[in-house]
Each structure stands twice: as C-alpha cells, then as structure tokens.
Write a protein that binds this DNA or RNA. Structure first.
Lengths: 196, 196
DNA sequence: ACCTGAACACCGTTCAAGT
DNA sequence: ACCTGAACACCGTTCAAGT
C-alpha cells in the first residue's frame, strides 16, 4: 500500500546506499540492479535514469570508496606524531583497517573494469590517494629520516606493501592480531630500507 | 552435422581449457557456463557432471593457477644465482611477469569465494606457494645475507610486496618498463631492510 | 556414467508509454 | 524529468529422460 516515497529526488542516493550495504554484506557478485530497484520500491527500468548501466553504479561506488580512504588516511595522519615512523605507521594502520572493514569496496575500487567515461574522476581520485603517500615520503626526506631520491619512485614500495596487506585482508581471513604483528614487522623492515 | 566428438572422456578438460582462454581474454565476468557448454558442443546441463557448480569450475581454475605459479617460481629459482639478492630478484621478476600475463587467473586464485569443499586443495596449493618464499628467506639467513628472525614472520614483507605488484599489474596498465624499475627499487629497499 | 532437453527463477538492458 | 511495465536475450541450476 505504499504510495511512492520515491518518484522524486532520492532514488540515486538510495540506490547507492543500498548498494554499498549489499556490497559489504554479500559481496560484489550479489549486487543486482533489479534487486536494488525492488528494495527501493521502484520498477526495474528506473535506475537507468541515474546510472546508465550497472557498471556506472559500480564506478560511482568505487569513486566513493577512494574518497573515503583518502579521508581516512588524512584523518589518521592528522592525529599522528611528527616522525616518519609515526606517520608511516599511522597510514599503514588506517589503510589496513579500512581494507579489513571495507574489503569488497576496496576490491571494487581497484578493480580493472574502467568505464572510460567515469575513468577521469577515478583517475583523479587515485591521484589524490597517491598524493597522500607522496607527502608522507617527502616529509620523511625533509626531516632526514628517509634517504634522498625521487619521491615518485621512493613511494612505490610503501604502496606495494599497503596493497599487499589489503590483499591479505581481502583473501584469507587471518586473525587481526597476527596481521597486526606482520604489519609491524613489515613497517620495521621498510623503515630500515628507507633510512639514509 | 558434427556427431559428438565429445559424449565421452574429454569434456572436463575441454571446459577447463576454454574457460581459461575466456578468462584470459575477456575477464572473469564474461565466463558463462552455458557459453562454455555451447563452445564444447554440449547441452547446458552437461557441465554439471564435471563441475557441480560454476564456482567449482572457478575453484579448479584457481587451483591450476596456483600450481602454475609455483612451477614458474621454481623454474625461475632453478636458473638463478646463489645469492639472496639473485634469488629474491628472480622470484619477484617471475611473479610479476606471471601476474602481468595471467592477471585474471591470479585475481581469481586469490579471490575470496571459497567453496569450502574445494578449499582443502586450494589451501594446500597456497601452502606450497608460501613454502617457496619460506625456502627463499631461510636460504638467505643461512648464507648470512638475511638477518635472524622467525622465517614465517620474516617472509611476510616479501609476500606483501609481490601481492602489491600483482595488484599494480592487475589494475592499472602501466608500461612494463616503469614497473620493472619500480620493482628494482623496491627489491633494493627490501634488501637493505633484510640485511643483518 | 554421461549427456539431452526442457523448465524454473533469475539477470541487465531497452523502450514505448505514462505522469 | 522521472518512472512504469512489458519485452528481449541472456544467465545458473535442476531434473526427468534418454543412450
């Protein structure tokens, strides 16, 4: 007996919100446009007005994911100490925690299916994420804790490590405590490697 | 007018072979059990006798992927020098090359959808992969190039790095030359970090 | 044992038509 | 502008029945 609480305005946001919840709880393969429409109390063709295709919705989700991870990292850095070790640790902790709590979202964000139309925004978002690491390394170089070298190249090992741990969080459900210790070990080795 | 070249024997192998080719060329989402059956000249229900479900076929593919990567790494190590640096480099090169050439297969192998039935074999396969890294680190410790410490913990940074570069190869299509340089940089930093 | 062929309950996408 | 409702061409899975 529900007489459309939608029909105007809110559908796009409602679809995205539901999609992210489904993604988090049941994985990306369980994401159905028709089911989303059903849950929103709307006909199967309705989503098309806001997302030309299912991939377009996934792209929007991925973009949101990038924005949130960047915000998370910046938040962690804001509350961190001033040494390179402190800042690297804060970044790594925040990233791995995000990967654990939003596995599917992150997997989706890095997924390779680029709708060339939406790619522009996505590239910009990954660039912002990349810039966080650039700043981190540059800061370390200025304070003398990281040895000299082109920042764009110097930051790669850190990114690789973060991606690697994100993959751990994604695939095997190891217990958080062990991951934490492994992460600490890895940070220690990287710090030795980065030292002047 | 084809009178069944199948009907016996070859279907399972034929399905796997076709599946891997489709996976490589069009990605995992384009993999359809029905289409595979069509290509094999067989009815839609036929695959069920060899793979109870689509996921079972994907699991078999993933298992094959693990076996091949282990064989690839062992092959690379067999032709490598004897120092830890040589062996780490050979392993990393082989892994990243495999990731570039078999992106979808590797992505599938690490994908988190575990059919608990097939998981046993998959776990064994990942264990064999993990053992290759264990040997690598232990070898380095024995030769005095890697500092002391529990091998199971010491090898984690290397695995993270490999996973990270596999993710690079998977997501962004950067040019191979740049990846190569980034990989060399990363290996150098890890070597510094691992040194006694 | 292995496969057929039809059925079932779903998809994503399209598009006239409604409001 | 936004949505409906029906259609189209697909899916994965199931299962009697055939050989």
């Amino acid at each position: 007996m529900k007489t459309g609480p939608y029909h105007h305005g809110e559908l796009r946001a409602a679809l995205l919100e539901r999609a992210e919840e489904t993604l988090r709880r049941k994985g990306p393969d369980a994401l159905s446009l028709r089911e989303l429409a059903r849950e929103a109390g709307v006909s199967p063709g309705a989503p098309r007005h806001h997302f030309k295709t299912k991939q377009a919705l996934l792209d929007a989700l991925a973009l949101d994911g990038f924005n949130r991870i960047v915000a998370t990292l910046n938040g962690a850095l804001a509350g961190a100490g001033d040494t390179f070790a402190d800042r690297l640790t804060a970044t790594a902790y925040a990233y791995v925690r995000f990967a654990r709590d939003h596995t599917a979202l992150l997997e989706l964000a890095y997924s390779s299916k680029h709708d060339p139309a939406a790619t522009e925004e996505l590239v910009a978002a990954t660039q912002r994420l990349s810039d966080v690491l650039t700043d981190l390394v540059r800061h370390g170089q200025r304070s003398g804790e990281v040895r000299e070298g082109p920042v764009e190249r110097m930051k790669v090992p850190i990114i690789a490590m973060l991606q690697g741990f994100a993959a751990f969080a994604a695939s095997r459900a190891i217990d958080a405590e062990q991951v934490q210790q492994e992460l600490d070990d890895t940070i220690a080795i990287l710090l030795r490697g980065y030292a002047p």
